[in-house]
Every structure is written in structure tokens, then in C-alpha cells.
């Protein structure tokens, strides 16, 4: 009887752990894509900034091409924003589920946070 309860406790702990591992895996996969898009956003911002700077200072006398380039970068910006939001919504859904489990299922929080630390780069600030 004692052995059976021990087995059941062990089984339930393992279930929580497995569930956390699966959840983190899904989040990590989405997060990898989010990191890529984030880099696109920051790079795009830098490019736009640089062109705007050149236009403002009239570094080049022929501004026609710069303006054209700026327009095209701004249209990419809209697309990148849409892609960002779509991905952010997907991550939010997964994170909301995980957050719910973190605050309701005993033991899940530790497993989840541990797995997140393993899978994603979590930095501790002291």
C-alpha cells in the first residue's frame, strides 16, 4: 500500500514535470522565431534611422532614391509588425496556459521555471 502511494506520488510528479517540459518546448520553439523577428525589427529601425538621418542632413543631393528606399522599408515595417503581433499572440496563448498552471498546479512552477532556464536564456539580476 505504502509502495503504491509512493509510486502514485512519483507518477504524478513526473506528469507535472513532463507537462512543464512539453509546455516549455512549445514556448521555446515559438520564442526562437520571435527572437529572429525581433532582430529584424531592431535592424529595420536602425536602417530607417540612418536613412532618415541622411535625408534630414541632406548628406546626398539626390534624395529621390533615399526616399524610395525609406518608403519600401516602411512598408516592410508594417509587415514585420503584423508578423510580430501574430507570433506574440501565439506565445501569449501558450504563456497564459503555463501561467495558469504555474499558479494552480503544485510543483509545476518549479519544473516550468527550471525548464525555462534550461531552454531559454534566463538572466538573474541581484
Amino acid at each position: 500500500m505504502y509502495l503504491l502511494s509512493l509510486l502514485m506520488v512519483g507518477f504524478s510528479c513526473n506528469l507535472k514535470k513532463n507537462s512543464a517540459i512539453d509546455d516549455v518546448q512549445r514556448i521555446a520553439t515559438l520564442s526562437e522565431k520571435a527572437v529572429q523577428i525581433r532582430e529584424e525589427r531592431f535592424n529595420l529601425s536602425t536602417k530607417i534611422r540612418s536613412i532618415e538621418d541622411s535625408l534630414f542632413k541632406k548628406v546626398q543631393t539626390d534624395t529621390f532614391h533615399l526616399k524610395k528606399l525609406l518608403d519600401s522599408l516602411n512598408s516592410i515595417k508594417v509587415k514585420v509588425l503584423e508578423a510580430t503581433q501574430l507570433l506574440a499572440d501565439s506565445i501569449k496563448i501558450e504563456m497564459d496556459k503555463a501561467m495558469e498552471k504555474r499558479s494552480t498546479i503544485e510543483g509545476y512552477k518549479n519544473s516550468f521555471d527550471k525548464e525555462m532556464k534550461r531552454k531559454l536564456r534566463v538572466v538573474t539580476i541581484r
Partner: peptide, 25 residues
């Protein structure tokens, strides 16, 4: 606590142990 709020935008997850040090950062 661990700040997961920026994860969806591809930013890192940061773990803090003190609110003052979070503000300092």
C-alpha cells in the same frame, strides 16, 4: 520573480530578486 512579459516580443527572460535592482537596471 521572473519577468516573462517581453518573451512574446523575442526579448530575453529576466529573473529579479529585488525591485530596486530592477529599477537600477
Amino acid at each position: 520573480f521572473t519577468d516573462y512579459s517581453q518573451l512574446k516580443y523575442g526579448l530575453s527572460v529576466r529573473n529579479y530578486t529585488n525591485f530596486n535592482s530592477m529599477a537600477d537596471e
